[in-house]
């Protein structure tokens, strides 16, 4: 049984790393130069957040594992990111809608976490909150532009929404260990984020001329290490260097 705070921090790190990697896959493939830069910048923010969380997790674990050990030397079942972030990057509409759904949750989440009784989590969150504000604004603008754009862009956005929506439920899951952290004032209760998240989603969707799907069955498992095959492929890419050349450095 791992310490709850370690598990909690590791989940935050894994979400940030996996999403950051998905965003980084766009580098050199963006639909236009400005978006190529934007996606790479958002990737960098996420990976930076992951580094901060991994470093803290490694320190509190006390087994001498560094941020790199945690990122590069764990296998699929050890990763605890939500399934939403490991979905393949898809087309631009898919990537931007995922970024919107995620940052509309993470922005208020980090805002609350910055008041955590755990000083280190609070410090990391205070930085991350500012970054997610830009991710939210940028992705929201694109969701509106695509939804209220051409027939083609609107169709792609709708398709992305149908794909992604069943993966949004996992953001609000809480297990017993996490519940204790919430009661201790260390962790954020995701239920408290939900009204604001829905409000943001509805407001942007109204401008984008799309509707939030009716409540559907939600996918779950990533937080417990039960992943889709996509994470394995992602890790093969992400971890290749350290697996093939253990301990190699720049």
């Amino acid at each position: 049984m791992e310490a709850p705070l370690f598990t909690y921090t590791l989940r935050l790190a894994d979400n940030a790393l996996v999403l950051g990697h998905r965003l980084s896959e766009w580098c050199g493939h963006g639909p236009m130069l400005e978006e190529d830069l934007a996606l790479a910048n958002m990737a960098l923010d996420c990976i930076g957040q992951a580094r901060n969380f991994y470093t803290y997790a490694g320190e509190m674990e006390g087994k001498g594992r560094s941020e790199d050990d945690l990122a590069y030397l764990r296998d699929c079942a050890d990763f605890t990111n939500i399934l939403l972030v490991e979905r393949p990057r898809g087309d631009f509409a898919f990537t931007i809608l995922r970024q919107f759904l995620y940052s509309a949750f993470m922005h208020p989440f980090f805002e609350q976490l910055s008041a955590s009784k755990d000083e280190r989590l609070a410090a990391i969150a205070a930085k991350a909150e500012k970054e997610m504000a830009y991710h939210l604004r940028h992705s929201a603008e694109w969701v509106i532009r695509l939804g209220d754009g051409t027939e083609g862009s609107a169709a792609r956005l709708s398709e992305a929404l149908a794909d992604l929506w069943p993966f949004t439920g996992e953001m609000f899951e809480v297990d017993a260990a996490e519940r204790a952290l919430i009661e201790a004032g260390v962790a954020v209760d995701p239920a408290s984020i939900r009204p604001l998240w829905l409000e943001t989603v509805d407001r942007v969707f109204a401008d984008a001329l799309i509707t939030r799907p009716k409540d559907v069955w939600m996918q779950s498992g990533g937080r417990r290490g039960e992943h889709s095959e996509h994470l394995g492929h992602l890790l093969a890419d992400l971890q290749f260097m350290q697996r093939a050349y253990p301990g190699s450095v720049w």
């Binding site: 978006e35 830069l37 934007a38 910048n41 960098l44 923010d45 830009y134 940028h138």
Partner: peptide, 13 residues
């Protein structure tokens, strides 16, 4: 504003 993100994280275009 052309883009929220510019040549570095701290700049917009």
């Amino acid at each position: 504003r052309v883009s929220e993100f510019g040549s570095t994280a701290c700049k917009a275009l």
